[in-house]
């Protein structure tokens, strides 16, 4: 079947089986292999993309359901020489090792910071009626849907903390 997808601001005409997940559409049909398949069941977060501003698992989404939705993948966030602040911070803080979960981590973190800005609480927020604080624990909980077997978690938290300006992150690190 035919679906018109909007990805990173560009329009793509996808001709694919209705079974095709958004992730497989990106990787196998559209040549956008930045989004990774780690589990194909929403259990690792490697496939995270941003749909209408919200992070989702592209493996658990049918491509044919996504017409009219603005999709942003890792390729749309930045490129070598013009990295996004989070991408740049991941490089400097070594917020990855093998790099396979990294696009998902960065897409998730990008949208996650918007969730905090919008005042969304998390399960580690003490007072649900207040605006959540920016803290390492908040970032860590909110990034727990993205597995990293190399275990760059402390560096991922540092990278995001720096970009988010958690507790004057830079001063604390000096």
């Amino acid at each position: 079947m035919k679906t018109t997808l909007t990805i990173n601001g560009a329009s793509y005409e996808l001709e694919a089986d209705s079974r095709t997940s958004l992730l497989d559409a990106l990787r196998n049909h559209l040549g956008l292999t930045g989004s990774k398949k780690g589990c194909d069941h929403g259990q690792c977060g490697s496939c995270t993309v941003i749909a209408d501003g919200r992070r989702i698992n592209s493996c658990l989404t049918l491509a044919c359901m996504m017409d009219g939705v603005e999709i942003t993948t890792i390729e749309g966030l930045g490129e070598p020489g013009a990295l996004s602040p989070l991408q740049d911070a991941f490089v400097r803080h070594d917020g990855y090792q093998c790099g396979y979960c990294t696009p998902g981590q960065i897409c998730a973190a990008t949208a996650m910071l918007d969730e905090i800005k919008a005042g969304w609480p998390s399960v580690v927020t003490d007072d649900l009626t207040a605006s959540p604080e920016l803290s390492e624990a908040e970032i860590s909980e909110r990034m727990s849907g993205n597995l990293c077997r190399c275990a760059a978690y402390p560096n991922i938290v540092d990278a995001i903390s720096e970009v988010a300006g958690v507790n004057g992150w830079k001063e604390a690190a000096e």
Binding site: G42, R54, N57, A108, T125, L128, G145, N146
Partner: peptide, 23 residues
Amino acid sequence: VRRNYEVLSRALLSGASGQLRNM
């Protein structure tokens, strides 16, 4: 929900991941 049904908000936030809760 956060104000009057905290139990529900907390249950939802304890489930799955941010990505899955969005879908």
